[in-house]
């Protein structure tokens, strides 16, 4: 199996420097994602799941430091990259859909300018070529390319989310890290975006690290799920097993914490 591993993280440790000494946010985490696989990472706020997302792309900033472990992506040691290699590698190999992605667009640039920015910097290609690529991507996520000349505030929340997705796809990355991609959206729009992500994943076959605190949402879509508690991964298993046969007490607690339609009324 190990040759299929696109992302392989071993013993990852991330510390935040505080006045009281280092605080270990990620404690000796092992995880891997195979080619074309969707791994869900679930846990409550503050458990370290976003810290992992940032560390994987080396986007973490002081006071956060990676103090141990290794990150291997497609056979390359990410922690050994120099700045220039890192800049080229980011977005072309691995891209990121940020939490509250609706606000991840620059409000003073048109949608096209945000595409061109990334495309030009990484490929050096002309504006006309960037335009063609941007139009192709907009059609891919189901938005009329004419909206490329709009500013972010002129688009609805769902459309902005689609634009952010399209932007993450621009260099055809093999892994997309999605940090709470649907959290700020309505249920119906959330479902629309999830369908979109699932469809794109099926079409292009990239891997996804899907981070959310909504287990039910994740279970609809992920191949495997990892449960995180206070910086540690306490359970990893196939989605089916996590849903029907959770082993760790915390996983059971997470399921219990969500009211579902099966709940008998009047039980407190």
């Amino acid at each position: 199996m190990s040759e299929d591993r696109f992302l392989d993280v071993k013993g990852l440790e991330v510390d935040y420097m505080t006045l009281d000494g280092p605080f270990r946010a990620v404690k000796t985490v092992d995880l891997h994602i195979n080619k074309g696989e969707v791994l869900g990472l679930a846990g409550e706020s503050g458990c370290g799941k976003s810290t992992i997302a940032y560390a994987l792309m080396r986007l973490h900033r002081p006071p956060a430091f990676i103090s141990g472990g290794s990150i291997t992506v497609d056979g390359e040691d990410v922690l050994a990259f120099d700045d220039e290699t890192l800049n080229q590698w980011r977005w072309s190999k691995v891209s990121l859909v940020f939490q509250s992605a609706m606000n991840a667009l620059n409000p003073v640039l048109t949608i096209f300018e945000q595409f061109r920015d990334v495309y030009h910097r990484h490929t050096g290609k002309s504006t006309a070529e960037a335009r063609a690529r941007a139009e192709e991507l907009m059609r891919l996520v189901g938005i009329d390319p004419i909206r490329l000349d709009d500013y972010p505030h002129q688009l609805s929340g769902g459309m902005r989310q689609r634009v952010v997705l399209a932007n993450a796809l621009i260099l055809e990355p093999q892994l997309i890290i999605m940090d709470e991609p649907t959290t700020a959206l309505d249920v119906v729009v959330q479902r629309e975006i999830l369908q979109e992500i699932a469809g794109l994943q099926q079409k292009f076959g990239f891997s996804i690290l899907f981070i959310t605190h909504d287990l039910a949402l994740m279970a609809q879509f992920a191949d495997r799920i990892a449960i995180m508690l206070e910086g540690e991964i306490v359970e990893v298993n196939e989605t089916q097993e996590i849903v029907t046969n959770p082993q760790h007490d915390y996983t059971k607690k997470l399921w219990d914490a969500m009211p579902s339609f099966d709940d008998a009324k009047g039980v407190a």
Binding site: G142, V187, V188, Q190, R191, E192, L194, Q195, E196, A198, G199, L200, Q201, Q202, K203, D214, L215, A216, L217, A219, Q220, F221, V243, F261
Partner: peptide
Amino acid sequence: KLLLSSVPNARTKIDADFEHARDFS
């Protein structure tokens, strides 16, 4: 019905086929 069908249900996988991805929308 639309609202109800959008509520995440852990026991049903969504249809991941790209050709169908926009049917729901």
